[in-house]
Design a protein around this nucleic acid. Structure first.
Lengths: 202, 202, 202, 202
DNA sequence: AATGAATGAGCGTTCATTCAT
DNA sequence: CATGAATGAACGCTCATTCAT
């Protein structure tokens, strides 16, 4: 005989968000398999059953987390690049690297969780693809605009994306090679080098 | 009255290896959490209890797999670099990248399993560190020898290691940017660029 | 701003009937345990909570279904028997068997559901008892009237009732021993024999 | 960290039987859905997991119970009929009815459970069919041998089987129409009547 | 060394029921 | 009257680990 002690209704979107937030925090701390649905609902201060009012399975929250992450990062990167003059390829590339690195610095573990530790069912690295595609386009456009010479922009995009992801991850993992500022500077220099620009140039 | 159809006992090392092989195959195919101890022992053709004669917990096999992987890759990379003239830094760097890439191409999923999907308990990327340290030493030595100018060899090592890992992984993931040969050539060119060498030079 | 597309309220009796109809259909199709309250309310096109405005528990609908079934069948049987001359015992018995068989043929699964699959809490076969009692009375009256010789009318009533139920059920279960007409004829013959009448007699 | 307090091994068949016995008792007392696996294992004095060493699902015990019941009853009935002279059709029919009734009197609820309350997945009443078929053969053989005149032995078999089942069930349900002996006598008389024999004859 | 029956904590999911709106 | 979000006890099933043989 279930007794509803606190059946306080909230807008579905809000409840859903609270569940996602609790899940994100727990997945990050103990992994996906290491987190129980009950912990998530406890974290969101709802009853266990409420979880299934918003997600069909435990895996579904992860899916939702994935989408939320990708959208946020893509928005940030797009905005940063768009903030640069149309033909300043160097600036656009630097903006991309910087925005992406900052996004990862803020959410490296989350990215790891949703795309690496528990890869999406279909293809590995959907986010990777979305972001890499964006970078690919940028590099190809710069090459077309004469900013640099890159033969296979796809390869370079993958190369740079992973390099960036790695150094950021390393930094986030607590083995810092310096503060955030110097990280971004060093990253920029390496990105420039990778496309054949001289890092020190303005 | 049990009949010993096959030798019931084997040297511990051999049994252990068979269990590790079965575990590796299964972990790769179904993931760590998705594999049961019973499946491992069935795969190794021993009884369930035998597992615990060789490993204290399920996690321990993964640990052992990690160590086996790192040692093998490190040996290969070390040998490849040692095969180059002492002062041919360019050649040594290229050898490093090539050996490491080939090692990953041959065992990308295994690396993913033991270092990414189920990260080691203590610090993230022990293998990364062992291999990155090796690369770090190489870059620092080359800088010291005047082959290139790198201020923070550690950063560059992490940068390159992850870039390499990423492009190799992409290739392994079935979205090839070309065949293995062209992958290695493109990789070499980017590695050279990253340390400031001109790729096209011999 | 909710818009009342259909009248939101209905006479209680009507709502209750709709819920019972939906429940009957679902219970028949998927069993009592296999049907959820939500499916019933969906079937009746009302909200989940509305169910509890009409029934205290899920078991209560079944109870209501039971009563509805018994009443209907008893009415039909009573009417059929009453349609025969007062002293035509043979005719009355045949009418009983025929009406009861037809009632079951039309609702065999429903009977099975409410009296067999989920027997009433208290005594087994309330319907059986109501109908059996009716038959018992009829047989006893016929014996008293000299139509046949039956010592324990109760036993014979139970015997006949179950025999009837069984052959009808078999027919309903899709393993017909003939069409409905021949079923009723064969049944009549067996019923007559069971009370010691010669079947072929007029 | 599971601790085995009493890991006492028993022959699989014995454990399986103990689980089946516990399940039978509980299913009979509280129904299939009303019984939990844990109650079964508690009843059999084993741990929960042990259940799944012997049955894949909860439904599987019921299946096993079904088979055990049918086999036992069929054996008893066959033996009883075989104990009568080959051409004593009256005696064979009486033996059939008596053995079947006794079998049911001893296990009426069990029959109800395994064949009626939770019908087998495929067709309704496998036992019914097996036993009915047996009776069908007997009636047909008797008709062929001139013992009685029955046109549709299948119909009569179903009729008698269900009549028998009903009166026995009624008796078992605690509403006795007399003691076991008089039940069997009354049953015999009705069975004879149903095939057109005069009950009082020797 | 090897076995495999036994254990039991734990998990994801379901769903009858309640009640604030 | 009607709604449907919220509740939480309960259940079937899994599986890492133990240990008597």
């Amino acid at each position: 005989m279930p007794i509803a002690l606190r059946p306080r209704t909230k807008p579905p979107a809000e409840r859903r968000d609270e569940l996602m937030n609790a899940a994100e925090r727990l997945f990050l701390a103990r992994g996906f398999e290491g987190t129980t649905v009950e912990e998530i609902t406890t974290g969101a201060e709802v009853a266990k059953g409420t979880f299934y009012l918003h997600f069909a399975t435990k895996g579904d929250v992860l899916e939702a987390l994935r989408e939320r992450f990708v959208q946020g990062l893509l928005d940030a990167v797009t905005a940063a690049v768009a903030g640069q003059p149309r033909d300043d390829w160097r600036g656009r590339l630097a903006a991309w690297a910087r925005a992406c690195a900052i996004g990862y610095l803020d959410a490296a573990s989350l990215h790891h969780l949703v795309f690496v530790a528990v890869p999406p069912p279909s293809r590995e690295g959907m986010a990777r693809n979305v972001l890499v595609d964006h970078l690919d386009d940028l590099i190809a456009a710069g090459a077309h605009g004469g900013a640099w010479t890159i033969e296979e922009s796809g390869f370079t995009a993958v190369f740079l994306f992973n390099a960036l992801h790695g150094v950021v991850n390393q930094a986030a993992a607590g083995e810092p090679t310096g503060d955030r500022g110097s990280l971004l500077r060093a990253l920029e220099a390496h990105v420039f080098r990778a496309v054949g620009l001289r890092p020190e140039a303005g």
